[in-house]
């Protein structure tokens, strides 16, 4: 077993797309809660302790803001609790606000995990086959960005040593930074022509280009992919057959608690908690392994 990020990019992409489809577009409260808790657990495993605190400080106020403001925009619902500025504040709108907050925060955390896991080379690999030329442009850009940034620092320093950044006035500062930025642009354009020479020298543009990659599909990947696809198939069947239908307006519908609905919840719950489980297993395996050495 390996940590989640070590799976094949295709496996990971299928996983994230499936989870995000449900997280973004299905309003069933149970599925939403499962998605949010899966996301939180996964991100806790991925992040350092200090980052986690910072995230709590960001997501909780966001959650409250979304939940509280919803009743102000939406006056649907059949159970008015009180009136504000002559508009009814309904029970349904409050619940819907909470549900929406669960969804938005959940999706945001999932995307954060996605950002941690899907590094640029995995992304490039996935699109390298479908759009080879664009993915090369992307790869070049990933090469250029640090290179240009460094050049900008160098120009900055050189100009500072020429006394350029000495003035305290805002206009002078603006002027000098923009001329430094311009110098960097000019250098970048000029230098990139060498890069195109280097590409031509190595035969870029010949017919029948292939794409090389370090990623390989292992049996672990196929297992995870199959698991993911079959659980997702179950979930989507449930969604398509209306088992998970859920609405907040005009009144909150009853949660479907039939056995078949529960199967759906279990299926999606498994998907949602999968990365967390894999990470924990990996961490434990290491601990066990180290204690044995």
């Amino acid at each position: 077993m390996k940590a989640f990020g070590n799976y094949h990019p295709a496996t990971l992409m299928i996983y994230f797309i499936s989870v995000l489809l449900v997280a973004m577009f299905v309003s069933n409260l149970v599925l939403q809660l499962l998605s949010l808790s899966g996301a939180i657990l996964f991100s806790v495993m991925l992040q350092k302790r200090s980052e986690i605190l910072g995230n709590i400080g960001f997501y909780i106020p966001l959650f409250l803001l979304i939940a509280i403001t919803n009743p102000l925009f939406s006056h649907n619902g059949v159970t008015p609790l009180f009136f504000l500025n002559g508009n009814p504040v309904t029970f349904e709108a409050i619940i819907y606000g909470i549900a929406i907050a669960v969804m938005i925060v959940g999706v945001m955390i999932w995307f954060k995990c996605y950002g941690e896991i899907m590094s640029s080379d995995k992304f490039l690999y996935l699109f390298g086959k479908a759009i080879p030329k664009l993915s090369l442009v992307l790869s070049m850009a990933f090469r250029f960005i640090p290179l240009f940034k460094r050049q900008l620092q160098k120009v900055n320093k050189a100009q500072k040593a020429l006394g350029l950044y000495s003035s305290k006035s805002f206009m002078d500062k603006l002027r000098s930074s923009s001329s430094v930025f311009m110098a960097m642009i000019s250098w970048s354009l000029e230098n990139s022509m060498d890069t195109s020479d280097s590409m031509k020298a190595r035969g870029y543009g010949l017919k029948g280009r292939t794409t090389f990659t370090l990623f390989r599909l292992y049996s672990d990947d196929i297992v995870l992919m199959t698991l993911c696809v079959s659980l997702m198939a179950i979930t989507f069947t449930g969604i398509a057959t209306g088992l998970t239908d859920f609405h907040y307006y005009p009144y909150i519908s009853n949660l479907n608690r039939s056995p078949s609905a529960i199967i759906i919840y279990i299926a999606f719950g498994t998907i949602s908690f999968l990365p967390f489980v894999i990470e924990v297993k990996e961490a434990l395996a290491w601990k066990y392994y180290i204690s044995k050495i």
Binding site: S139, T195, S198, M199, A201, G203, Y204, L206, T211, F212
Partner: peptide, 25 residues
């Protein structure tokens, strides 16, 4: 080429090594 920095095309060492071979198909 003369300048070691600007002739590197891609962002990863392994990809840079493979770049020419990819082009040759």
């Amino acid at each position: 080429l003369q300048n070691p920095d600007s002739q590197i095309v891609t962002d990863k060492v392994w990809h840079e090594l493979a770049f020419g071979l990819e082009n040759l198909g």
